Structure formats: structure tokens, C-alpha cells
Amino acid sequence: SSQSQGISSSSTSTMPNSSQSSHSSSGTLSSLETVSTQELYSIPEDQEPEDQEPEEPTPAPWARLWALQDGFANLECVNDNYWFGRDKSCEYCFDEPLLKRTDKYRTYSKKHFRIFREVGPKNSYIAYIEDHSGNGTFVNTELVGKGKRRPLNNNSEIALSLSRNKVFVFFDLTVDDQSVYPKALRDEYIMSKTLGSGACGEVKLAFERKTCKKVAIKIISKRKFAIGSAREADPALNVETEIEILKKLNHPCIIKIKNFFDAEDYYIVLELMEGGELFDKVVGNKRLKEATCKLYFYQMLLAVQYLHENGIIHRDLKPENVLLSSQEEDCLIKITDFGHSKILGETSLMRTLCGTPTYLAPEVLVSVGTAGYNRAVDCWSLGVILFICLSGYPPFSEHRTQVSLKDQITSGKYNFIPEVWAEVSEKALDLVKKLLVVDPKARFTTEEALRHPWLQDEDMKRKFQDLLSEENESTALPQVLAQPSTSRKRPREGEAEGAETTKRPAVCAAVL
């Protein structure tokens, strides 16, 4: 046999249950609850290399294929790409003598399909299967379609040439079993990697079954959420508030809700932002270029202005709740996480202390139980975000031990490091100062900020419009641009040419 590394010779191994799959997660993409704000000051410096380099560890398999027929071997997927077919160049070659004697062998292509993985959001991997055969590759009886790919989820059954000719079961060793999710959700989405997690739940990458488009699904544990919100009269209202707010909003710089499922837990389906959180971008770069800050901040102002015009105060604006559309420097941003939002009543007064301390406005800290506050709290938070983006460190921090965090904020005395700000323009610093004003009545509004000289930049605004146009074009394009080929190089076993392929839609398939 010419099988590559990772293939075992026996096809009769006992199949494990899916609970053996491991679970991976990374930083929070968007969480309903406010958790302790991640610290920006503690960015690790590059460490000196050791005298002796450690040995390379043996790579762990990321997936496993269990053979369902004699003549096929099990495969431990270690590499990122595997070709399957009769050709000797394939990493998994159909060359077992037992297999060659079967009637089905002649229906398999020289290069029938490939399984591979690509880097997705949060640097996690996504597994795909890609059909290159004349007679078809099927996943859970659905045709992939020649020249098309679809994501592979845990426990997928792979069939060759005929939908009933099941050859492998695919085990993704990095994700959960699909069966743990409600059927209504599974009918519409293929669940994938964990993108982030918080005290009350997690955010998962998923794929729409009909279109193969990526989405983010925010899962909120009702049990954990009820415990964490025990002081509230009705904890469920917080989730329902977020859903109702998101459904009503329609702005290019605000995250869109696509679906909602109320089962044992809450499942909020949101558009996916491939670039992750602004927080991670700031930490990764230490600070952002001023031109990049301007492009992002302009969009934040437009989003918050839209919220305020619609009578909504976000109340928890922070870099973790600003998501980026891509890994590119120039990209769209979207505001997310409306769990603490407040729809303005007639009095415009709110007395609930919520939000993240580092970003809270002075009037929030001094008015607990005594007075109210209004939309100006969001403008203060925007000032803190702009400060961080321009400088790479927070204006107020618990680690300045000589003054408490509350006193720093209520006095408006931010930590100004001259040598850092020497590289920032006077106009940018002036806008920061106009937003970090203790008196909410004297603080800049979103309208005033948008009129500030720093943002009178036609090149930046043109760039934003171009990015918007690109997004609109990409969302308007159909996901499947061509029909699967019906040509046949070899006959199917026991049926006429093209008899099955043309009847089945290529579900969740995307043209390369």
C-alpha cells in the first residue's frame, strides 16, 4: 500500500463515540455579560531565545476518518491537505487489492476528492471536503458537486459515486458533537469551532446549510445566566432586550441578528466578523496607526449616533465590543453586545450600574441610586476607546495605585505619557480631550465629534464608502454560481449515467 503517514491498516477498528472529540476555545468574540476587562498594560515583551531549542513535538491529529468498508483504511489527519483517489500521487490511494476487485472500484476517479483545513476566524481551523469526481462525492447523502466544497462537521458520513455507498465517517477532533444542539438549529446550521467564551456562554462559528455562508452563533446558558443575574427581577429580559434591539436596528456599522432560537439555552445567530475584536488588534499591534484609528472611530461614531437617534444607549462600549470585518488594516467595524443597552424612556434617566469599570463615565460612578444619566455615557466610553487606539494603553487603570480607579475617572485625570502622545496629531488629542470631559453637559456629542476637524478627511470617508460598496456587492452575490457537472467518465454501479447527480441539489457548496 502507498498510504501516507497516519493511515492504519485495519478497517475493522472499533469506532469511538463522539464524546472523545476535544474542545477548543479562544478569547471572547462577544459576550452578553460584562466580565473583568482584559488588561492592556500587560503586553508581554519578546522573550530571549533559549540556548537549546526544544524538540519539535509530534503533531496531534486534528481529524480521524473511520473506514466503513473492507479495502479502505482508517486515517489520522495530521497534515493540512489529503487527496483521495486511484492515482498513485494521492496521499490516500485507493490501491488495496481487496478494493480493486470490487465492482465499485471502476466508478472512483483518479482524484476523487480531497479533505483539507484552512485558517478561519480567531486563527481556528475549518475542515472542508472538495469534490473532484465525475460520479460524485456525497456528505450525509447530499451531493457536494464537482469543483465545489463544503465544510465537514463531526460525524459526517462520506459516500463515493452513490449516496448509499458510504466509505468513511469523519471525526473532527477539535469540535463538539452536533447532537448536543437543538434540532431546529441543526436543521438550518452546521455548528463548528468555538470563537470565544464568557461567564454565561460562548460564541460558535457555524455555516448556513442552504448557502454555506459563515455566521456566529452566540449561545447563552439559561442556567448560568439565571445564577449570574439572580438580582434582576427577570434575567430573561436581558436576552430578550438584546434580541428586540438587534432586530430593529439596520446600520452597516451595527451587528445584524439573523436568527434566534429559544431552547434549553438561547441561541442568537449573528453575522460573522472575520477580523475578531478591536481589543485583540490593539494588543497585537501595541497601538494602531492614526489613519486606521480615524477610519475605525468614524464608523463607531456613525453607529452610536444611529443608536442615540433611535433612543438607544449602549452602556457597555469597549474594544471587546467592536468587531472587525476582516484581518486587513482597512476594514469595516461593527458594534455588538447589546445586553446592557437601554431604550430611552421619557425621563432619559437610568440608575442601574452596569458596564465595565474602566470605560464607565464619571456620572455613572457618582450617581448610583441618587440620580440618572443619559446618552453622554456612550460618548465618554468612545473617548476611552479612542485614547486606547491612539496610545496603546488605557487612560484609567486600577494599577495606578496612588489613585483609585473611581477617583481617576470622576476627576477626569487620565494617565498622559508625553513621549507616547508625541507621535499623535494635535487634532486627534483634542478630540480625545473633548470626549473625556467629566461634566456630561459639556462633553462632545456624537454629532459634535463628527464635525471635529480631525474627522474632516475626505480620503478616509471615501475609503469607508468603498468598503461599504464591497460589502454590499459580496452579500448580494449568490453563493453557488454554477451547477454541478453531469458529465460521466465512468458508469455508476447499477444505474444510468447522471441518474442521481442531477436530482440532488449541491447543498452548502461554494464554487472555488
Rank of each mutant, 00 (worst) to 15 (best):
L450C: 14
G276V: 03
K281V: 08
P357D: 06
A496R: 12
A428R: 13
R351P: 02
R375W: 12
Y359S: 05
W380G: 02
G276A: 05
G355C: 02
F279V: 05
A303W: 00
P362V: 02
I245N: 14
C293L: 08
S425K: 09
T370I: 13
Y359K: 02
E271W: 10
A291E: 06
E447F: 07
S348P: 15
E493K: 10
H340F: 04
E500W: 04
V322Y: 00
G494P: 03
V366Y: 13
D378F: 04
H399C: 03
I343Y: 15
A510M: 09
G355N: 09
T486R: 14
Q327W: 00
M273Y: 03
E500T: 12
V403T: 12
A263D: 00
F261I: 07
L353T: 15
Y359C: 04
E458S: 10
L249F: 11
G284S: 09
L272H: 15
S367M: 15
P252Q: 05
E244F: 11
A510W: 13
E320V: 03
L386H: 07
Q305L: 08
F297L: 10
E277P: 03
T292V: 09
Q479V: 05
L323Y: 06
F297Y: 13
N472S: 15
A303V: 00
H340A: 04
V366C: 10
G284E: 14
R375L: 12
L360F: 08
G275E: 07
C253Q: 08
E500P: 08
D262S: 11
T347Q: 06
K427R: 07
F416D: 14
K286D: 11
I257L: 10
R287S: 14
N259R: 07
D378C: 08
V283E: 04
P491T: 08
T292G: 10
E320G: 01
L405C: 06
G383I: 01
Q456E: 10
R287V: 14
P491H: 14
L468M: 07
E274N: 12
L288E: 09
T370W: 14
E264V: 08
E244C: 15
L272A: 11
L246F: 04
R287N: 15
E426H: 14
E329T: 09
D430R: 04
L353R: 07
S469L: 09
L429Q: 03
T446Y: 12
E329H: 01
I312T: 06
L365N: 04
S397C: 15
W421S: 04
E497D: 08
K461M: 12
Q483K: 10
R375V: 11
K289T: 13
E419K: 07
L302P: 01
A442G: 08
D378M: 00
A449S: 06
C354N: 00
E274A: 08
C331L: 08
Q299D: 01
H340N: 14
I343D: 12
E500Q: 11
D337M: 01
A303D: 02
S367K: 00
P319L: 12
T347D: 12
E329V: 09
K258L: 08
Y296T: 12
K433N: 08
F444V: 15
K489V: 14
E320R: 04
T370L: 12
D457H: 10
L405G: 01
E495T: 15
K434Y: 14
E493A: 04
R443H: 04
R375A: 05
E448D: 08
C253A: 15
A422L: 15
T352V: 04
H314L: 03
R315F: 00
Y359D: 01
A476H: 04
I417G: 12
E244G: 15
E242D: 03
H314R: 05
S474G: 00
R504Q: 00
V282I: 11
D457S: 12
K258S: 07
E277T: 00
F297G: 06
K503A: 00
I254C: 07
N259D: 05
